[in-house]
Amino acid sequence: MLSIRNLTASINGTPVLKGIDLEIKAGEIHAIMGPNGSGKSTLGKVLVGHPAYEVTGGEVLYEGRNLFELAADERARAGIFMGFQHPIEVPGVSNAAFLRLAYNKKAEAEGRDELDPLEFDDFIHEKIKLVSMKEEFLDRSLNEGFSGGEKKRNEILQMAVLEPKLAILDELDSGLDIDALRVLGDAVNKLQRPDRALLIITHFPRILETIQPQFVHVLSGGRILKSAGKELATELEDRGYDWVLEEAAAGGAR
């Protein structure tokens, strides 16, 4: 589904990604862990086309197409979604109107029928149940004044509405209470299908007990230093990142 080959990217002229290789197949769940500032969010934002980042080298194929030929909105309509670490607030635009618009734009692109406000009402009520969101959040302005956890819940609601093929979830778990973490973890699992894939960015193994990845990657200094199975998450929890860095340095020296 997604092949990243020797991807490099920079922001304001500073290189952040320094050669990323990653292969994600349909049905797979991947986790990326790594120290603060290592480039995890950057990788996600480059994949969804954030304009502040400049791709300086390498290539990314999404379903066989050159990802960088698609604008951000085209990538979204082609099925790529990122749940942001810090979702943006948009005053004056009601959450419900925004969700309906986003849904209909995607439906239009896929040649499906658009939903009118009444039909959408039924549709969205099923979706808010999935993420246990209170109805009043639909009438509020998009993310405005939402708590950190409420914003994350709203990101997963958007994911449930858009049903992406590839979802990148950046620190979904930060700012979530224990119950919310379980509810949203379950919701993400319910949305996962054999023809879809997930890329989970996190600092904590806890969320990976609910959303169980087949692959865990350590990203540090803009490179993936180590990839292994899900047991790597707990090992990192116990031992920190230093040993991975040392191992990589030794490997590089050899």
């Binding site: 979604f81 990122m82 948009v90």
Partner: peptide, 12 residues
Amino acid sequence: ELFYLQSRGMNA
């Protein structure tokens, strides 16, 4: 804000 909306599939 523009990017956030575009990342949800809205054109510019």
